[in-house]
Computed example of a mutant assay.
Amino acid sequence: MTSIGIIVGSTRPGRVGRQVAEWVAEHGRKRDGIDVELVDIEDYGLPVFDEPRSPLLGDYAHAHTRAWSSKIAEFDGYVFVTPEYNRSIPSALKNAIDYLYGEWNNKAAGFVSYGSSVSGARAVEHLRLIAASLQLAGVRTQVSLSLGTDFEAFTTLTPGERQDAALQQLFTEVVAWAEALAPLRRR
Rank of each mutant, 00 (worst) to 15 (best):
L134D: 06
A153R: 15
Q142T: 10
Y99C: 14
E84Y: 08
V124G: 00
T149P: 03
H126S: 15
S117T: 09
F111V: 00
F111T: 05
E125Q: 14
R87Q: 04
A123H: 02
F111D: 02
S146W: 09
P83T: 04
A132M: 15
G102H: 11
E84S: 01
Q135K: 13
K107A: 01
R128D: 07
S144V: 06
D150V: 07
Y114L: 02
V143T: 01
K94N: 01
L147I: 12
S119G: 04
I130P: 12
S119I: 03
L93K: 00
N95P: 09
L147G: 11
G138P: 04
E84D: 02
Q135A: 12
G120H: 06
Y85G: 01
G102L: 12
K107D: 02
H126D: 11
A108C: 00
I97L: 05
R87F: 06
Q135F: 11
I130G: 12
G102T: 12
L129A: 14
I97S: 06
S113L: 01
I89V: 05
L100Q: 13
A108Q: 03
I97Y: 07
R128I: 13
S91H: 05
D98L: 15
A123Q: 06
D150Q: 05
F151T: 11
S119M: 07
A108E: 02
A132L: 14
S91I: 03
S133Q: 15
N105A: 15
H126L: 13
S133N: 15
A109E: 04
V139K: 11
A131I: 09
G120R: 01
K107Q: 04
S119A: 07
A153L: 15
F111N: 03
L129Y: 14
V118L: 00
V118I: 05
G148Q: 14
T149C: 04
P90K: 03
L100I: 12
A108V: 00
E125V: 14
T141F: 13
S117G: 00
I130S: 13
A132H: 13
Q142Y: 12
A109N: 03
N106C: 08
P83A: 03
A96L: 10
N106M: 12
A109D: 01
S116Y: 15
E152F: 13
F151S: 09
R122A: 06
S117F: 10
N95Y: 06
S133T: 13
G120V: 01
G110W: 00
V112E: 02
A121C: 08
I130R: 12
A108N: 05
S117Q: 06
Y85S: 03
R140K: 14
G148F: 15
S88F: 00
S144T: 11
E103D: 15
G148I: 13
P83I: 02
K107V: 05
R140W: 13
I97G: 04
K94Y: 09
W104G: 06
G120P: 03
E84W: 09
S88T: 05
P90H: 01
D150S: 07
D150M: 01
F151E: 11
V112R: 02
A121H: 10
S146E: 06
I89F: 04
G115W: 05
A131H: 08
L134H: 12
E103P: 06
G102F: 07
G138N: 10
V124K: 03
L127F: 02
V118K: 04
T149R: 03
V139W: 09
A131M: 10
S144Q: 11
L100K: 09
T141I: 09
A109M: 00
L129E: 13
